[in-house]
Computed example of a mutant assay.
Amino acid sequence: MVWKGTAESKGGDYQVSWEIACSSKDEGGLGVHDLHTQNLCLLMKFLHKVVSNADAPWVRWIHQQYKPFQDGFEPSKTATSSWNTLAKLMPLYQAITSVDVGDGKSTFLWHDDWTTLGPLHQAMPALFSHCSAKSITVCAALGSRALSL
């Protein structure tokens, strides 16, 4: 244990709250990194490289192995735990980013923020509830006539 110097501790043994311990030294804290937050940030950076199709061998491998813009960023029983961890972060990633559609091949029609309405699944929940292709890209939707009535 950090504060008491023994292997066992009780709630009253801590002299500093975790919030203060994680504050920077400039703010009067101890500068301890919150590893959960740091891990989340690093995973989001990793996910951004996959989504933005960074020029790296491991990104190409992920795109060949999981085809995220074809099959969607969905956790599955057959995928590795690493992929499932990234796939579960996709809603958070989409919530904090916006998209320049470009050719639409890497822009998800329903979940990415690419319109003035925001993500379409939030702007049109009734329509989204009837959608059979929830992970379709803009390019695939326009190319397959999935948007025609």
Rank of each mutant, 00 (worst) to 15 (best):
G104E: 08
D13Q: 01
Y14N: 01
A141K: 06
W61P: 02
V51C: 13
Q122H: 10
I96F: 11
Y93T: 05
S9H: 14
G118S: 04
G31P: 01
L147D: 07
R60F: 14
A95S: 15
S76K: 13
A7Q: 15
D100M: 05
F128R: 02
P75S: 14
C139I: 00
W18A: 13
P91M: 03
P119W: 04
P68I: 09
S129F: 02
V101M: 10
W114Y: 04
M90T: 07
H36Y: 06
S23A: 11
G102E: 02
L42C: 01
G31L: 00
A79N: 15
A141R: 07
W61R: 12
N39F: 02
I62F: 14
L43E: 02
A7T: 15
T6R: 15
G104F: 10
T85W: 04
T137K: 00
C41S: 03
F128Y: 14
W110V: 02
L109Q: 00
I96H: 12
S9R: 15
R60V: 12
L89C: 04
R145C: 11
W18H: 09
H36V: 09
P75R: 09
D103E: 13
S129Y: 01
S17G: 10
Q15T: 05
G118E: 01
N39C: 02
S129C: 04
V32K: 07
Q122S: 08
P119F: 04
A21N: 06
D13T: 01
E19D: 13
N53A: 14
T78I: 12
P68H: 10
S76I: 10
A140I: 05
V59I: 12
S144G: 15
Q94P: 10
K10H: 13
G72I: 06
Q15M: 00
A54T: 02
Q64N: 15
A141T: 05
L43F: 04
V16K: 02
F69L: 12
I96W: 09
Q65T: 15
L120A: 03
H111Q: 09
S23C: 07
H111D: 02
M44G: 00
Q38N: 01
A126N: 10
I136S: 10
P119L: 06
